[in-house]
Design a protein around this nucleic acid. Structure first.
Lengths: 231, 231
DNA sequence: CGAAGCCTTGATGCGCCTCAACGTACGTGG
DNA sequence: CCACGTACGTTGAGGCGCATCAAGGCTTCG
């Protein structure tokens, strides 16, 4: 049986009494997704909505020509696959487990009911959608006005802040991430990302290896992201 | 006094009885905005939400360096400035009248109440937000994967379909739009847009003049937008 | 141990920005 | 109504940023 403490402190459920959380949980199924497996795919009928309990999920959209673009990473404690909140009945993107993940899944049919019964849940989730729209718009502005170097610096800086864990060398991004992944987040190529990381490593901004990036000087990385050309 | 027929047939109000529309309208103020004036600005406290009755509104975001990016155009019949639906209390962008406009304005305090009282209004507006998020994501993918020529073709094609009126020459975009505007929609420069339009005019795809674009071959323009290099 | 996946680094060239100069339509006030 | 100022549009020359093409090294895993 799932315990209420699993979700009681998470932002989406803020303001719902524990008893109600119990009933909510009784309708949820806990599922395990292993690394690189798909939770759902773009175009699939949106039969469930999800809460990520542990791990990281990569949300990916396909371009018409088959190229992939990473829309965002979901961290634990976040809702995802909430197509209902967007008035959709299919998922708008692929969701891939970046590492082994545990998620709760509710049937979509419960969405409407939940939103109506718990106004705080409704306002929290719509706020989430709102901020994702905001983020998307920001990214459009970024793509339109900034150079590749800034965008890559910004992407890594945000990832480090979202998922980073402190090590003695700096902030380590807590999920396996390749040069290719970064390029798909920023609209460039893995080659350019590789060159940038090499240069930054020389200048002591980051330390990186196979699918691993540690930010050693968040400060200077942020400066780059904000457009200061180095030295 | 405002007449119910003004809004009765508009999508956002679909499914609300005429009597309720009357009460709703009684709280609205009709306002006139002359060409190039601001309805609201980015960062302003979101005191009202709006319905555009006539005209076209340009939604613009400012980049940190002062550059402007056009997020979208609002056509008549659409809601805009609905910061509440995004859980925000300030507007996330500027709204500028592209031509003389007439809009209804409601105080933001009415939003919550309206959403709760009319479920169809709620689901319609959240669907709107959802599709704007979708559009934004699509645009990110576009910026990341397509060449300037495709993006410009696509922007013009969409504008022509959204606002176009039939003339004997083709589809005329029904609002004054400069090379600069197009460049701010696509993340390029007015120079490149000018060169593209000149070339397209030579090939008989469009006819354009000062702040005016007529699409003479939507078909071939769409082909360009989809990535077919011409001839 | 081989294969597949990830990373690096060089060489080359093109797409598009930048800079510059000029032409043209609009509207505004004398 | 004409003259001027301003906003918009065009077109050329030059060069930079980054994609593309190419080749090879290093890990990880079956």
């Amino acid at each position: 049986m799932l315990d209420v403490s699993l979700i009681a402190d998470l932002p989406p459920f803020d303001g719902i009494e524990r008893k109600a959380l119990g009933t909510l949980l009784s309708h949820a199924k806990s599922r395990h997704y292993e690394k690189s497996s798909a939770v759902f795919n773009q175009g699939d009928p949106a039969n469930s909505f999800f809460l990520l309990l542990d791990g990281h999920i990569r949300v990916v959209r396909m371009a018409p020509d088959g190229e992939q673009i990473i829309a965002r990473y979901i961290s634990s404690g976040e809702l995802f696959g909430i197509a209902q909140a967007l008035g959709r009945d299919t998922y708008p993107a692929n969701a891939i487990a970046a590492v082994d993940c545990i998620a709760l899944a509710w049937p979509s049919s419960l969405w409407q009911e939940t939103v109506e019964k718990y106004p705080s849940f409704a306002s929290n989730t719509y706020k989430t959608v709102g901020s994702r729209l905001q983020e998307a718009q920001d990214r459009i502005v970024e793509m339109a006005t900034e150079r590749v170097e800034q965008r890559v610096a910004n992407a890594i800086w945000k990832l480090a802040n979202q998922t980073g864990i402190k090590t003695d060398e700096g902030l380590l991004i807590d999920l396996p991430i390749s040069r290719q992944d970064i390029s798909e987040m920023t609209g460039t190529t893995l080659h350019t990302v590789s060159r940038l990381l090499s240069a930054w490593e020389q200048n002591g901004l980051v330390k990186s290896g196979r699918q691993k990036i540690t930010v050693t000087s968040g400060h200077r990385l942020k400066l780059l992201a904000d457009g200061n050309r180095d030295r």
